[in-house]
């Protein structure tokens, strides 16, 4: 299937700060892609470039098959965008705001808007400025879903939302599920927020793409390994590259295997930890994997260790 977003060698700098550094990635159609990274990693700059809200310094982006620097209003009618710092006409009531958005979108589905209004428990007569942050972002989401966009781009939508509102937000968004080819690109600094939702995970760190992989294959290849040793041992000087964050405490060695293969690991354990008595492999959640990778990036500043092959 053709990607819904194609990013090629994207660069964006602000003064001397490089926000996005040679980023190349595809966002597949019909899936939920989580775009993860710590604050300041370059997520918002990337998103703004792909929506033509910022001009890239180099590189090319195609969104829905068209050059992002030439996105026209017809293209924007197929894209829903909600960001953390969404600008909204705060003097309007919820109802006025929706009435104001509607004429811009020929595909606006009023029945669907009404359904979401009810589901989100939004008070139509209240001014946006009187709403809580959570309520306001739900109103923003509503205005971006009501015209049934093909692509939904969410920039840190959940930050600062209480769990209940976050839940309602996700539930509301999933009303779109049955739409053909519907795609979501959602950025977050906290994987826990999107863990179950993501079909695909992309991690950006210091403007560079560190990882871009199907969630299922990540969960399949990562394991937390615990080795029981006969006697206390020193940490081997040169462990295999796929052993991340190796640590030994007393008679227990622990590490993350980023390329788990039962038979291969058994040989590698014997070779690198000759004092090993037994070992076991524990499945990891996406969150565990994310934390292990984040630690690795911080330690050696490279993406070598995280590679699958």
């Amino acid at each position: 299937m053709k990607p819904i977003i194609e990013i090629r060698n994207l660069r964006k700098r602000f003064g001397r700060t490089v926000a996005v550094d040679d980023l190349t990635m595809d966002v597949p159609e019909g899936q939920v892609t989580a775009f993860l990274g710590p604050n300041g990693a370059g997520k918002t700059s990337t998103i703004k470039c792909l929506l033509n809200l910022l001009a890239p310094d180099a590189g090319e982006i195609r969104v829905l098959g068209a050059d992002s620097s030439r996105l026209d209003s017809a293209a924007f009618r197929q894209i829903g965008y909600v960001s953390e710092n969404q600008e909204m006409p705060l003097w309007m009531t919820v109802r006025q705001f929706l009435d104001y958005c509607r004429p811009m979108y020929p595909a606006w589905d009023q029945a669907f808007a009404d359904l979401l209004l009810k589901q989100f428990d939004l008070p139509p007569g209240t001014k946006l400025k009187a709403l809580s942050r959570g309520m306001r972002i739900k109103a923003a989401l509503l205005s971006s879903l009501a015209y049934r966009p093909k692509l939904v781009v969410l920039d840190e939508p959940f930050s600062g939302l209480d769990p209940l509102v976050r839940d309602e937000f996700i539930r509301g968004m999933l009303e779109m599920t049955e739409q053909e080819g519907w795609s979501v690109f959602v950025s977050s600094h906290d994987i826990a927020e999107v863990e179950r939702l993501a079909d695909r995970v992309a991690i950006i760190h210091r403007g560079r793409l560190q990882l871009d992989e199907a969630a299922e294959s990540l969960v399949a290849r990562f394991r937390g390994i615990e080795v029981l040793l006969e006697s206390e041992a020193a940490t081997p000087g040169n462990p295999p590259a796929n052993w991340l964050n190796l640590e030994i405490s007393g008679r227990v060695a622990r590490f993350t295997d980023s390329r788990y293969d039962e038979r291969e690991l058994d040989g590698a354990v014997k070779k690198n930890l000759p004092q090993a008595r037994q070992w076991r492999a524990l499945p990891m959640t996406l969150r565990d994997i994310f934390v292990a990778l984040a630690r690795t990036y911080r330690l050696n500043g490279s993406n070598q260790a995280a590679e699958g092959n």
């Binding site: 019909g30 899936q31 999933l174 009303e175 599920t177 049955e178 939702l197 079909d199």
Partner: peptide, 16 residues
């Protein structure tokens, strides 16, 4: 339905 499963469990529609 796929939509209900996905909404109730907050999982990706693809998974459902």
């Amino acid at each position: 339905s796929v939509r209900t499963l996905s909404q109730e469990l907050r999982i990706s529609p693809t998974t459902a």
